[in-house]
Each structure stands twice: as structure tokens, then as C-alpha cells.
Design a protein around this nucleic acid. Sequence first.
DNA 1: ATTGGGCTTGCACACGTGTGCAACACGCCA
DNA 2: TGGCGTGTTGCACACGTGTGCAAGCCCAAT
Lengths: 347, 347
Amino acid sequence: MKTSRLPTAIDVAKRAGVSRSAVSRTFTEGASVSPETRAKVLAAAEDLGYRVNFLARGLIRQRTELVAMVVSDMDHSFRARLVDLLSRGLVNLGYRPVLLPWSEGDNPGQLIDMMLHYAVSGTIVTSDTPPGDIAAQCMQHGVPLVLVNKAPVDSNVARVVEDFESAGRLAADALAEAGCKRVAWAGQRRPSFTIGSRKAVFLDRLLDLGLDFVGDVTGARQNYAGGQEAAQAFLEHGLQADGVHCANDFLALGFMDGLRAAGVTIPGDLAVVGSDDIAEASWASYDLTTIEQRPEDLSQATLDALVDRIAHPAETARIRQVGVRLVRRGSTGAVRVASSSGRSRGG
Amino acid sequence: MKTSRLPTAIDVAKRAGVSRSAVSRTFTEGASVSPETRAKVLAAAEDLGYRVNFLARGLIRQRTELVAMVVSDMDHSFRARLVDLLSRGLVNLGYRPVLLPWSEGDNPGQLIDMMLHYAVSGTIVTSDTPPGDIAAQCMQHGVPLVLVNKAPVDSNVARVVEDFESAGRLAADALAEAGCKRVAWAGQRRPSFTIGSRKAVFLDRLLDLGLDFVGDVTGARQNYAGGQEAAQAFLEHGLQADGVHCANDFLALGFMDGLRAAGVTIPGDLAVVGSDDIAEASWASYDLTTIEQRPEDLSQATLDALVDRIAHPAETARIRQVGVRLVRRGSTGAVRVASSSGRSRGG
DNA sequence: ATTGGGCTTGCACACGTGTGCAACACGCCA
DNA sequence: TGGCGTGTTGCACACGTGTGCAAGCCCAAT
């Protein structure tokens, strides 16, 4: 039972007693074959274990069912979950996701190279920083593209973005509701597009609500370590704040741990509001109030956008907004609910 | 600047004033081309923006540079990190990882279908449960396969496994070192291969060390919620244990939170040892002693195995073992070190 | 009985590349 | 000068499929 060449359409045709065209048409969506021929072909194919060679098909059609998925920071659990959902969704649609990890400093050329090498059906970009002029390149070569949570580009490109207006507003409201008067913001020194937009709305809303903004505290990156750095800065600057909005949940958790190590109690001394609602935010040790961004919704909107883009490449691209929701938990003094029925996400 | 057909080798040949074969050979590793011809071809290719069509190449060579990556439970941060490292490594080797999410109950047929549809160079399986008879199928069709942390199969298949002997031993040693006398095990009802093996060694080692084993406490899955369920079971059974080894870190964290909510102090009343050393284990609120399994090592061993398998498909497959290490932290009463220089992983 | 239309079928070309084979050029040695 | 070996080149076939085109079939309507 060693490796022998795979059966081709010719083998199937021979066995079924029909022409090769009939085989091809049987496996082609919407082609014209009589039910009898179709049945004969399917039976023969089943017998031989025939599978269409997608390379040959792709060569002819100038398109494969591969989709490029450009991703960075996959060790962020929100991103990992999004990649998981996107890949599941793509497979269900009949596409095959090719995972292209990308970090700032990598060569963006290899991304467009891959897309053209394999004639992908489309591309999804979820990386934190946009890889070079990928939008222009995709447009030039007719590769449908969807950007997730990225800044606008001049090209005609489909985008999916968080409803950052609601996010910023809800964060400010949550702190106001917790009775805060003097508020700070914690995040990364160079905020990404989404977080920058959200912050701007947040600051505006603070004004509207009559709360004082006392300043930023930052870390190098928006992760747990960055949160600890921000906590350090918070303590060193002696910031007189009674509420903090953190750029994302990971950073918020590091921030909380950093403050607690110095004896600060949450929400006693300080209310904290995060963003994303990752699984860890609901853990009993943190019980973090946060702005939920459902990765399921983000994923679905992205898939919708991609399918739409593939079907109608010529039309002008839409922007899809994905809703957010405030999740009240202990870090703003909300009443704790029994947490044993917590989320099942997160390992 | 609308989408026009990509330049082919013929276009390049015409422009360079050589034959199409010369173009093909220029882009083929180890083919015979004179330096002058090569230079002319490369210049012309650069001018036209020529890229080899990998579909046509794959059709001829019966092989593409795609590698199937079968993954489940990507929302487990250890798995996500592994996928990240593997995909980076594959891309650096010139391969392109196709992400195939797989859950128990999915149709395993679609996996082997994909591999044959696209003539992949190889397959890596990292899913929790092995998808059907994928090993036999890959072997039959000559697809190089590497299994990561999976049970042996009868086919001749390369495997990468954690050094579970050391892992089980180190966990027992750590509890003994913490002064424990009566020890329990917390995990999932149906442990996976690695965890089952590790547990067996762990129990043996307890005997050798003269410690009492007082029983299992379990949750439905090995995640945070599963850990909380295990904690509930622990409390309800009134287990008189002073040390617990948890199947993995996520479960350990849920277990700790579940016990703490009931007033149990760690490590005062109970020492806890996890497994994996995910980023969250080092967080100040948990400070979990654990058995580190470096995803970098696991990834590298897997890539080595795959490359080896592709180069020498006929030889009998090796089993590669990846070392583990005990990381002493607060949950077993180790002295805390300043944690501000913590790991930068995890978002 | 004839005509027309709709569905099915087979032929043959096209997709873009790798590579065996023979031909050829060139330099070296006898 | 002739022969030989080494390195390069072009021709032509092969990889496995999709699909336009024309021919064929069957049935209903006139």
C-alpha cells in the first residue's frame, strides 16, 4: 500500500464510461450534467478515491480557495480567539486560511508575494500595525481585502471596526457611575488606531460628565507587563486619581496587580475599567469591569465583509461597525454575582 | 491601474531575450544557468514584477510549499503560542501553514481531503484529540506527518512529546519539598495522553517519596472553569490534602480562585503545582509554581521532525522528547522575587 | 412531418510551469 | 588538429483541470 499517483479525472471517466468533461462538470458548481451521468461519475469517483486537484483547478480559474490571514501578536488571547473563530468560519465557507504571522519590521513584500504565488481568493489583515502599503498592493492586483480594527486608508478597502464611540463613552460612564471624580488613562505610549480613537471619545465624554482628567500613565506595550509599568508610573507620579480606564484588559490586569502590591485596594481606593472582556477579566482574582467586544461578532462581520468583497469586487467598500457592551463587575464596585457559572473560554 | 493578468515566464523570457526554460531554471533551486543569463532574467523579472506561479509549479512537482496545521483549542494560550511559533518557523523555512481548526466530532475526512487537494508538503497535528485515522491516511498517501504530544499510533509516524517522566517526577518533588504529606490530583475526567502519562509517573513518585495520595478532583474540561469545578469537588469531599498537582496551569488558576473564595489560603493551607508555565501563571495574583514546558522547544522539535520527515520519508520515524523544568514560585511557599521583570508574553 | 428550443455531451484548447533529452559551445589535453 | 568532458541552452512533452463551441438528443408545438 505504498504511495501511488492519485486518480485523475481521466481514470474516473474511464471507469464511469463517460468523457472527462462529464467528470469535470460533475465537480463544478452549476455545470450542466444529467442526473444519470452525475450518479455514474460520483460512484466511480467514490470507488477510486478521486479528489479534484485544486492546483490544476486554480491554474485554470486563476483563483484558489485559499485566504491569506495576516496576524500579529497571536499570544494576545483576544487575537488568538479571533483567529480561531475566523479560521473556523473560513473553513465552513469552503476557504482554507493560510496563516501569515507578521511583526513590525518584517518584510511586507512576502505577504503580497504569497497571495500572488497561490492566487488567493482574498486577504484578512488583523495585525496590530498595518504591513506597508498592503492595501494598495492588494487593490492593484485585484485581491479582495478586509482590514480589521485598522485606520482608514486611501484605497477602496473594506474595513471592520469596533464601535469606538460607544466604547469610549461607556468607559467614562462606568467610572462616573462608580462615583469617580478624578480619572486617569493607562495604556501604551503609541496607541493603535482603535485605542487612540476610543481614548479621544473617552476624554470628551469625561468633560461632558464633569469629571477631571488627571493624565496618562503608560507602559511600553499593552500587555500585563505594560500594565505593571503603568502602575509603577502611577505610584511614582503620585497621581491623585480615583478611577482609571485601561487600554485593554491584559494591561488592566497587570495594572491592578501592580497597584495591589503597593497596598492599593480596588475598587476601594480606585475603580478600574478595562476593554475587550477577555476570559481572564472575569476571573475571581480580578473581576474586572470592562467594555466587551465580542470576537464572535468581529469575526462574523469580517467574514461577511470578505464574502461581499469577493462577490462584488467592483463596488465601493463598506465599513462595518461592531457593537460593544459594558460588563459591570467588581473593579468598579458592582455587586458580585456568583462566579461559578463563569465563561467557559480561556483554556 | 486595473487588474491585468500577471506576467508569465514567457513575458520575462521575451524581455530578457532568452528561452522560457532559462527563466524557469533561474527560479529553480540547483538548476543549471549561466551567471549572465541568470542576471538578464532577474532584471527582466524585476522590471515586470514577475512571480512564479506556485500552482503550475505544484502541479508539475506534485507538491506545494503548503503545510497543513491541524489545531484544536486555540483559545488555550499555550496552544495559541505554539501555533504562533510554528507558523513563524514554517514561514522562515519557506513553507506556508494552512490552519485547519479541528474539534472532536468534526469530519476527519476533510483534513486529508485538503492535504490532497493542495498537495501539501507535510502535516502537523496539535489537536487535543487525534482526528480519526489521520496517521494511516497520511501514510497511505505519502504525506509526511508529525504528531505533537499525542499517543503512539501503529503507523510509522514522527512524534514530539513532552518529557512526561521528568514532569511527573518534578511535580511530586516540588510538593514534597514544600513539606506536603497528603496529596491530591486535579484535572479533567478524561485526561489526554500527555497528562495521563504524566499523572502515572506523578503517582509512582509520590509512593517513592512516602507521600499519601488522597484522590482525584475533576472538572469537565481542563480550563479555568474546570479548575473551579475541581475546587468545588475538593471542598465538598472534605479532602484532607495539603498539596495538589493540577493537570495544567489554566485549571490550576481556576482551582486556586475557587479555594480562595472559600477562605483557603495558598500556600498556607495548601500548596499547588501546575503544569505548562503559561504567562498567567507568573501573574502576581497567582504566582504559581509549575512545570515549565517551553513552547519554543516544542515548536523547534516539531519543525526539526517535519523537515527530517520531508527529507527522508522512507526512514523509520524518530520520537523527539522535549525537556521540562520546575519553576518555583509562591504557590508552594517559595520566596517571592521582585516580579516587575516578569515575562513579556501574554498580550 | 417539420421545426425550434432546451439540455447534454465530447472535442480541443488553455492555464503556467518543470525537466529529460539532444544539441551546442568551449576549453583542455594529447 | 582532433577528441573529450563540462556546462549551458532550447525544444517539446507533461502535470490535471475548466470551459467555449458545435454537434447531438429529445420533446413539444405548429
